[in-house]
């Protein structure tokens, strides 16, 4: 008697629990399926435009005008790339972009990390005021025209200096590096100090090697920013074709196709170079790929680091 009264609710609870568990499993399967499907569709949406552009760039130019190319070229041809790399403007712009990126990364890392070291030293008397002057520039910008006037008055218009001189320090990366340097144990600094290292040597020989991961992250971000920029070319260096960059060339192409698109359904006419011919849509796709490929190439290195990079930046000291 007493046994059954105890056993009954137990059994009921057990069976109820079982059905609930089963229900939850069904619910879970449905949810997981829907979620996976949705996320896969989203990923496809993220990657489709690039695959589509790649397919068009690898397709015969005249055939591409017919439209309807998905993620696989219909008439495979390397002609577009041939044309693009035979166009002197694009060829030059590509190397100018590379040169600019290399110089910007080198100078920016050198000067930003040097200042970051100084600002990471707790004993430095002007630490707080200098940091403030740099941090305020994250929020304050005199504006496009005043910046242009300064570059003009400094005589840097249409010169390579206009690319790298204004960017040798970036305030945000300064804070990131300073924070990272602060995490270096004081014992290391002190022991180097007793060995007679001055501040410059301390920075260059002790602190810099310890900061390699942070420098890698910051360097990659600076490189991406420099490679992707176009406004500096437009504002400061558009008067000299030899200083043009890939992004700026692509921007000009985009602008002309936007204008053409407003007048007629598709931009007509052929892009020509050295007797080789392709169509505007194929040309634009090809230059887009040439401009995107370096980014896609460094992306695996970037993504390995960028989350940690963000975390470094966020833990502000």
């Amino acid at each position: 008697m007493s046994l059954t009264t105890v056993a009954k609710p137990l059994a009921r609870r057990a069976s109820r629990g079982g059905s609930r568990r089963r229900k939850r499993t069904v619910e879970q399967i449905i949810f997981t399926t829907l979620n996976t499907t949705f996320l896969l569709a989203l990923a496809a949406l993220m990657i489709y435009p690039l695959l589509n552009t790649l397919a068009i760039s690898l397709n015969d130019g005249n055939d591409a005008v017919r439209g309807g190319i998905g993620i696989w070229p219909r008439v495979f041809s390397l002609q577009n790339y041939n044309v693009v790399f035979n166009m002197t403007t694009i060829y030059q712009a590509f190397f100018m972009s590379v040169l600019k990126t290399v110089v910007v990364v080198a100078t920016n890392l050198f000067f930003t990390s040097m200042l970051a070291y100084v600002l990471s030293r707790n004993e430095f008397i002007f630490r707080r005021s200098i940091t403030l002057i740099f941090v305020l520039t994250l929020y304050f910008d005199a504006g496009l025209i005043p910046n242009y006037l300064l570059i003009r008055d400094l005589g840097m218009l249409n010169s390579f200096q206009a690319y790298w001189v204004p960017t040798i320090i970036s305030a945000f990366n300064l804070i990131v590096l300073r924070t990272y340097m602060k995490s270096i144990p004081d014992e290391i600094i002190e022991s180097a100090r007793t060995d007679g290292a001055g501040d410059f040597r301390m920075w260059w020989q002790i602190v810099m090697p310890l900061c390699k991961p942070a420098l890698a992250v910051v360097g990659l971000f600076v490189a991406v920013g420099s490679w992707n920029s176009w406004l500096d070319t437009l504002l400061y260096n558009s008067g000299d074709q030899a200083l043009s960059t890939l992004q700026y060339e692509l921007q000009k192409l985009l602008a002309s196709s936007m204008n053409a698109g407003m007048n007629s359904v598709a931009a007509t006419g052929n892009a020509q170079s050295g007797g080789q011919v392709t169509t505007p849509i194929a040309l634009r796709s090809t230059i887009t790929m040439v401009a995107a490929v370096p980014i896609l190439f460094v992306y695996p290195f970037l993504q390995k680091h960028f989350v940690s990079g963000l975390v470094i930046g966020s833990v502000k000291g």
């Binding site: 993220m46 552009t53 992707n228 176009w230 992004q247 698109g261 634009r284 980014i295």
Partner: peptide, 15 residues
């Protein structure tokens, strides 16, 4: 896509 330049993104969008 965050790492692609705005020129590229605008170009992809216009297509």
């Amino acid at each position: 896509p965050h790492f692609l330049s705005w020129v590229i993104v605008a170009s992809l969008a216009s297509v």
